[in-house]
Simulated assay, not measured.
Amino acid sequence: MSDSQNKAVLVGVSGVSSSGKTTLARLLRDILPNAFILHEDDFYKTDQEIPVNKDGVQDWDCLESLDLEALEKALDFIKTHGQSPPDLESKEDKNAVGESGVDKQRVAELKDQAHKNSGATSEVPIFIIDGFLLFSQEMQHIRDLFDVKLFLRANHKTVKQRREARSGYVTLEGFWEDPPGYVDSVVWANYAKDHAFLFEDGDVEGKLKEELCQRLGIDTAPQAVQSSMTACVDWAYTKISDHLSKRAAK
């Protein structure tokens, strides 16, 4: 199916846990006309099916914790029908993400700009999917479904600070709280393993392989915007707007 035939635009927002994915996704949903959110976390397996690692701890940050078949089917359904699958109910919106810290005036300006510039694309729904594993090597079949791929980075210190400040997460069947040491042994370890291929020498805090990212269509938030969600929203909005303009010109 060609880009012009798709009945929806899929925007993937990925990156390490606590990098601002869900915050950015919700802001973009509020700014863009006819925009909706889908969370990768809504495709976790049941609590009992989550793998247990060598330390006897459930691993919620590995590929095997997700129902990838259901995720791929949902994305295919959206591209074909321009709407969410009727049986999909989100639990992720029950999880708090805290204040975004974004200038409300800037959000209002972008929203006004988006509606003025929507033109021929105003009737095309935009689905923003946020998730920690959308662009990994093993997720190529799902990664290729996205029209826009936005990758957020955060260093280990920031991730550890933000993640450990959270109270926990609503799961399919209950509630999860990270045990001590979980960020280092599970969250960061999995992120590094699954995304090393995108970085020089496999160092996920180092330099990206820019040619590879370009070939895969992955746009990474510049260093200058990673410490400011307002700047991050500006960057993401520009990337999505560029895609919509190219789509309308076809």
Rank of each mutant, 00 (worst) to 15 (best):
K207E: 14
F199V: 09
D103W: 10
L150G: 05
T80S: 13
S65I: 04
K21I: 14
E138N: 07
P180Q: 08
V13S: 03
S2W: 07
K7D: 09
V102S: 07
N34G: 04
F199W: 03
Y191K: 04
R162N: 00
W60H: 13
N95E: 03
Q161G: 01
F151K: 07
I37M: 11
H39E: 12
S18K: 03
V11I: 14
D178S: 12
G119T: 02
D55Y: 10
L10Q: 06
L38V: 15
V233G: 02
V13C: 04
Y44I: 03
G202S: 02
C232K: 09
N53R: 00
R29K: 15
V107L: 12
W235G: 12
V16Q: 02
A108E: 15
D55T: 11
L198R: 01
I78A: 00
D76I: 11
G131V: 08
D55A: 14
F151Y: 14
L10W: 04
W176F: 15
E205I: 00
E138V: 08
G202A: 03
R143M: 12
A231P: 06
A96M: 09
A154R: 01
R166S: 08
D61M: 00
G82N: 13
G131R: 04
D219R: 10
D30T: 01
F43E: 04
G119N: 09
L150I: 05
I129K: 09
Q5F: 10
A120V: 08
D93F: 14
C232E: 14
R162L: 02
F132C: 13
G131Y: 07
E89T: 15
S17P: 03
V225Y: 09
A154E: 07
D234P: 02
I218H: 08
V102E: 02
A224R: 11
Y191M: 12
T121W: 06
Y237K: 00
V148Q: 07
Q48D: 13
E205M: 05
I142G: 09
Q113W: 05
